[in-house]
Design a protein around this nucleic acid. Structure first.
Length: 577
RNA sequence: GCGCCGAUAGUGUAGUGGUCAUCACUAGGCGUUGCCAACGCCUAAACCCGGGUUCGAAUCCCGGUCGGCGCACCA
């Protein structure tokens, strides 16, 4: 039994992760988060919010999961996210049609499907496996398609990433940040990809949760004011060069940026924050590395891209986060698609003076003369160069028609203007997190088994920040005189917004082990000394050590222990055995 | 999508063309028990779905679904 099997079996049995729709036979690529999985996932998301919303001063938004066609035309998902496939008529094997004609056509991407099919027919391309005839080309798009409203006329697509929500709201976000760079916006939510064959449990899903930040920066300034906070952090880096050698290297963030291994400070800063976040979520330091995209792997517009990878027992190194410098590609695409102006006006340090032609059409007279066409004529005049304006009559073309304008109707002159700034399309730094993969990695990296008195103890050493059950309340035995006060303590702790598990069934040892297995960090046991002396014991999951604490102090000490403000052994009187 | 293999209580499993299917763990109940999966008694709980062959199918055959592995795919 490998780790994956053990962890997935535990996750299923104890209610972390369930295959979805199991009642009806299930559907590949969909999973439910159960009673323990949902709070664990929320814990990871909340930890992420602490890092990428609160401490960065970014804002969180929430956009529809269904998008209109224009968005995905601009993002490239409509064309680039689908593959032209062809099927062998004999052996039913499926191929990427464009891959089959690579040796014939230099850029198969540029061809329409009919053209690819023609190339295949004209050049006698057959099935590489059995030599059979190939079918016509059909598209497989990884986006789920639906239709908006009745009649099915307006196509809609389930978003394949959350990022587009931040891009299409760029203007409003910029205004929210009072027209200043840099700023960031994030979104945590579901994305959908109709994978051809989803496998490996929650590693590849058809519906999954992403946490993405889009950080809009001045292209001319890729330094980061808080770089110093992370400069000395040592990371395991697997750079393009290191991949050639086949060996990752340890390095501080500042060294990596100084040597040009990581492109610039901002990217280095977010790689470092990603590392800190993943450690706090519960990944193992020695099973975590950052791998740089190779040149051919990186999107053509990207300046640099680093994936955080987690080492999993069965699957090897798996991508769980991508941190990319996407330059201004996304905003430029949306500018082209929407015709909107997605730029920022950046003031210059020193204003500069420029000569500029200013045209002033005399609207008082143009109006009565051209009536409805007056505006179009004025616009045409304003667009003319100096030489054209000097003619008599001035000639403009409006709606394909030649219009003559008397020179008296328009004034123009060269003016000296002061330029105080310029319009810039910001660059985007995008840390993109796969929450489901992180959650699974957290489970696997937290899982351990140890021998205790000849028995195997399974422990999920989850971090307090993300753990689903924060404290268990256990009467030593299920007797009224013990369970009464125990229930009362459970109520008190719940009143403090803690997630409490009350359990009185079976022996005390069994209940400890049950809680170890789901990661409950602390167990409070109510015994006869509770009745006589007003104390309880608190047991630590990892060490199995116990301390005795006054009942009246529980409400103060448990939250302090959970926040890590207090060491366990100092929180009370140690108990022998 | 293709190929190979598999699918039996919550979990892990045994088994067979012929009585409402084995065992362990787990879970629930009662008793016992003064702190690490203790013990006794009791209880609940399964043959993936559809079709076919057959007097009879959970078992054989076909199709589907799901899972594992390999190939392909993985913005």
């Amino acid at each position: 039994m490998d780790m994956y099997e053990k962890v997935i079996e535990l996750a299923r049995r104890r209610g972390f992760i369930w295959p979805a729709f199991e009642l009806y036979g299930g559907s590949a690529g969909f999973y439910d988060y159960g009673p323990l999985g949902a709070p664990l996932k929320r814990g990871i998301e909340d930890l992420w919010r602490g890092f990428f919303v609160i401490r960065e001063g970014f804002c969180e938004i929430e956009c529809p999961t269904i998008g209109v066609e224009e968005i995905f035309k601009a993002s490239g998902h409509l064309s680039g996210f689908s593959d032209p496939l062809t099927e062998c008529q004999e052996c039913r094997e499926i191929y990427r049609a464009d891959h089959l004609i690579k040796h014939i056509v230099e850029v198969p991407d540029a061809l329409a499907n009919e053209e690819i099919y023609r190339v295949i027919k004209e050049n006698d391309v057959f099935c590489p496996e059995c030599g059979g005839d190939l079918s016509e080309i059909y598209e497989f798009n990884l986006m789920f398609r639906t239709s908006i409203g009745p009649g099915g006329k307006q196509p809609g697509y389930l978003r394949p990433e959350t990022a587009q929500g931040m891009f299409v709201n760029f203007q409003r976000l910029l205004r929210h940040y009072r027209d200043r760079l840099p700023f960031g916006a994030v979104q945590i939510g579901k994305s959908y990809r109709n994978e051809i064959s989803p496998r490996q449990g929650v590693i590849r899903l058809r519906e999954f949760t992403q946490a993405e930040a889009e950080i809009f920066i001045n292209p001319a300034d890729k330094s980061h004011p808080r770089f110093g906070e992370v400069a000395d952090l040592v990371l395991t880096l697997y750079s393009q060069e290191a991949q050639e050698r086949g060996e990752a290297e340890e390095m501080t963030v500042s060294e990596a940026v100084a040597k040009g291994i990581i492109a610039h400070e901002i990217l280095g800063y977010y790689v470092a924050r990603t590392y800190q976040f993943l450690l706090e979520a519960g990944l193992s330091e020695d099973k975590l590395r950052f791998r740089q995209h190779k040149a051919d792997e990186m999107a053509h517009y990207a300046a640099d891209c680093w994936d955080a990878e987690a080492l999993l027992d069965r699957f090897g190194w798996i991508e769980i986060v991508g941190v990319a410098d996407r330059t201004n590609y996304d905003l430029r695409s949306h500018m082209a698609q929407s015709q909107a102006n997605l730029t920022v006006y950046l003031p210059l340090d020193l204003p500069r003076r420029e000569e500029r032609l200013v045209v002033r059409p005399d609207m008082k007279r143009l109006g009565p003369l051209f009536r409805k066409g007056a505006k179009a004529v004025a616009d045409a005049l304003s667009a003319l160069p100096m030489e054209e304006l000097k003619r008599d009559p001035i000639v403009v073309v409006v709606d394909g028609e030649r219009v003559e304008v008397d020179p008296d109707l328009v004034a123009f002159e060269m003016e000296e203007v002061e330029v105080r700034g310029e319009e810039v399309v910001p660059h985007v730094i995008e840390p993109s997190f796969g929450i489901d993969r992180i959650l699974y990695s957290v489970l696997e990296h937290s899982y351990r088994e140890e021998e205790v008195e000849g028995e195997t103890r399974a422990v999920l050493a989850l971090k307090n920040r993300v753990v689903p059950i924060q404290v268990a309340v256990l009467p030593l035995m299920d007797r009224d005189e013990l369970s009464g006060p125990a229930e009362e303590i459970a109520r008190e702790l719940r009143a403090l917004d803690l997630r409490v598990e009350y359990d009185s069934s079976g022996s005390i040892g069994r209940r400890y082990r049950r809680n170890d297995e789901v990661g409950t960090p602390y167990s409070i046991t109510i015994d006869y000394e509770t009745l006589e002396e007003g104390t309880v014991t608190i047991r630590d999951r990892d060490s199995m050590a116990q301390i005795r604490v006054a009942r009246s102090e529980i409400a103060e000490k448990i939250p302090a222990l959970l926040r890590g403000e207090r060491g366990f052994s100092e929180a009370g009187t140690p108990l022998g055995g």
